[in-house]
Simulated assay, not measured.
Amino acid sequence: MKVKKLERLKFASLLLIVGFYMFAGANHFISPEFYYPLIPDYLPWTKAINVISGLAEILLALGLLFKPTRKLSAMLIIAMLIAFLPAHVYFIELGGCVHEGLCVPAWVAWVRLLVIHPILIAWAWWHRK
């Protein structure tokens, strides 16, 4: 009985993570102006980075749906999340506020980096098998 509950939980979690990254990826195209100020100034090609990030999130989410590509997609999501770390650090350096955009208390930016980001990595790791 416990195995079936875990299988149902993992399936529900899989659908949730796929939906999460599909929405996040699509949002890069729906509201690109939200993401531009979050990309560190020292990185060139802000618009290209935004498009590549959005496409990566969508494609990797789709890859999670299929057993043959699930492990690779999960590992690439983890790599992508690691690649996003400079943006999180940059947001902290800005004090949690970007010019004419997202503004949260600085502690929220820290929680995003130190708590939410590792949870997202663990979530992808759980779905690698």
Rank of each mutant, 00 (worst) to 15 (best):
20 F>G: 04
20 F>L: 15
21 Y>N: 08
21 Y>T: 06
22 M>N: 11
22 M>C: 15
22 M>S: 08
22 M>Q: 15
23 F>I: 11
23 F>R: 06
24 A>L: 06
24 A>T: 06
24 A>D: 05
24 A>V: 10
25 G>D: 10
26 A>I: 15
26 A>G: 14
27 N>P: 07
27 N>Y: 15
27 N>W: 15
28 H>Y: 12
28 H>P: 13
29 F>S: 03
29 F>P: 03
29 F>D: 05
30 I>N: 04
30 I>K: 04
30 I>Q: 04
30 I>V: 14
30 I>H: 07
31 S>Y: 14
31 S>A: 15
31 S>M: 12
32 P>L: 03
32 P>T: 02
32 P>N: 05
33 E>M: 13
33 E>C: 04
33 E>K: 09
34 F>V: 12
35 Y>I: 11
35 Y>S: 10
36 Y>G: 12
37 P>I: 02
37 P>T: 02
38 L>F: 02
38 L>D: 00
38 L>R: 00
38 L>K: 00
38 L>Q: 00
39 I>K: 06
39 I>P: 08
40 P>D: 03
40 P>F: 03
40 P>G: 04
41 D>M: 13
41 D>P: 09
41 D>V: 12
42 Y>R: 08
42 Y>D: 02
42 Y>N: 10
42 Y>A: 05
43 L>V: 09
43 L>A: 06
43 L>K: 04
45 W>N: 15
45 W>H: 14
45 W>E: 10
47 K>H: 12
47 K>E: 09
47 K>M: 09
48 A>T: 14
48 A>W: 15
48 A>D: 06
48 A>G: 09
49 I>K: 10
49 I>A: 09
50 N>W: 07
50 N>D: 13
51 V>N: 14
51 V>D: 11
52 I>A: 14
52 I>T: 06
52 I>P: 01
53 S>E: 05
53 S>C: 04
53 S>Q: 07
53 S>W: 05
53 S>P: 08
54 G>P: 03
55 L>F: 09
55 L>K: 00
55 L>C: 13
56 A>M: 10
57 E>N: 08
57 E>G: 10
58 I>G: 04
58 I>P: 01
58 I>F: 00
59 L>G: 09
59 L>R: 00
60 L>M: 03
60 L>E: 01
61 A>D: 05
61 A>V: 09
61 A>H: 02
62 L>R: 02
62 L>H: 05
62 L>W: 09
62 L>D: 07
63 G>F: 00
64 L>N: 03
64 L>S: 01
